[in-house]
Simulated scan of single mutants.
Amino acid sequence: MTAEALAILKAAGAEGIEHPGGTLMAHLRRVSALLASWGARPALVSAGLCHAFYGTDGFPVALLDLERRAELVEAIGAEAEELVYFYASCDRASSHPGLTDEPSTFVDRFTGARTRPSIEARRDFAELTAANELDILAVSPQARVRYGADLRDLFTRWRPLLSEPARAHCRSVLGEPDH
């Protein structure tokens, strides 16, 4: 985690934004730590810390305008910022169901563009999504009741994209799939 990324998060008010399990800042730190515990490379760990900078399809609060992407690139590097943008730009309803398909179609919710991301990009996206959602479920019994079964189904379908540590964490938080 870079000091620059933490400074931008603080300046954007992440410590004061409510989020399951406390504040958005606490959540971002937990997601980053979870990815690190799974052995993720540094760029993905940094993306975990910053994944909410541009808001997401499920969390509309943006900490930084898209016009200011260069600031995040400076703080965490181009590769990590690209992962943050890719994660934030996901139109979940259009992109999640076919993420494991070859070819997979990914819809950018900011531009409407349809792309065919590489298997590496889809693995990173699945890993970051799993870390994000599993953190929320681990700290929020309400979210676990409301979303747990759907996320278990999603992550079961995404099993080919997830690392073994991520799959094991899915099982520990969500239990074994019913099918």
Results as ranks from 00 to 15, higher is better:
G39E: 12
P20C: 12
R41Y: 12
S37L: 05
N132I: 08
R41Q: 14
A80E: 01
D57V: 10
H179T: 14
E4T: 13
D135G: 07
H169E: 15
H179D: 13
L28K: 10
Q142F: 08
R157A: 13
L134I: 09
S140N: 09
S140M: 04
R41D: 13
S94W: 06
A52M: 14
N132Y: 08
A70L: 11
P165W: 04
A75Y: 00
G22T: 06
Y54R: 13
F110L: 03
F59M: 12
F125I: 08
R29Y: 06
R157Y: 09
L154D: 02
R157H: 15
K10A: 15
R41A: 15
I119D: 10
R122C: 07
R109H: 10
L24K: 02
G48V: 08
L128C: 13
E15P: 08
E79M: 01
T56N: 09
V107Q: 10
S46L: 01
R157I: 05
S95L: 11
H27Q: 04
A75N: 08
E127W: 06
E74H: 15
L83H: 00
S95V: 10
R122V: 15
A43S: 07
E15Q: 13
E71W: 05
I17Y: 06
R171P: 03
I136Y: 03
R144Q: 12
L64K: 03
T56L: 09
T115M: 13
F125D: 03
R146G: 05
H179M: 09
R116I: 11
P97S: 09
L66R: 01
R171S: 11
A33R: 02
Y85D: 02
L128Q: 06
A11L: 09
L151R: 06
L24A: 14
R157P: 08
L24P: 00
D108K: 08
L154N: 01
R171A: 14
G98D: 05
C170G: 04
G22N: 05
H169R: 15
F110D: 00
E71C: 02
R69V: 07
A36F: 03
V107H: 11
D124K: 07
V45H: 04
L134C: 11
A40S: 05
Y85S: 03
A3V: 15
R92I: 04
S89H: 00
A26K: 11
A62G: 02
L6R: 12
L137R: 07
V61I: 15
L66D: 01
L64Y: 03
N132L: 06
G58H: 11
P177C: 00
E120V: 14
T100V: 15
A143C: 10
A12Q: 02
D124E: 07
A43R: 07
L137S: 01
R109C: 00
A113M: 12
T100A: 14
T129N: 07
G148P: 07
P20F: 08
Y54N: 01
L174E: 03
S46K: 12
I76R: 06
M25G: 09
A168V: 12
G112S: 13
V73W: 12
A70W: 10
E102T: 02
G39S: 03
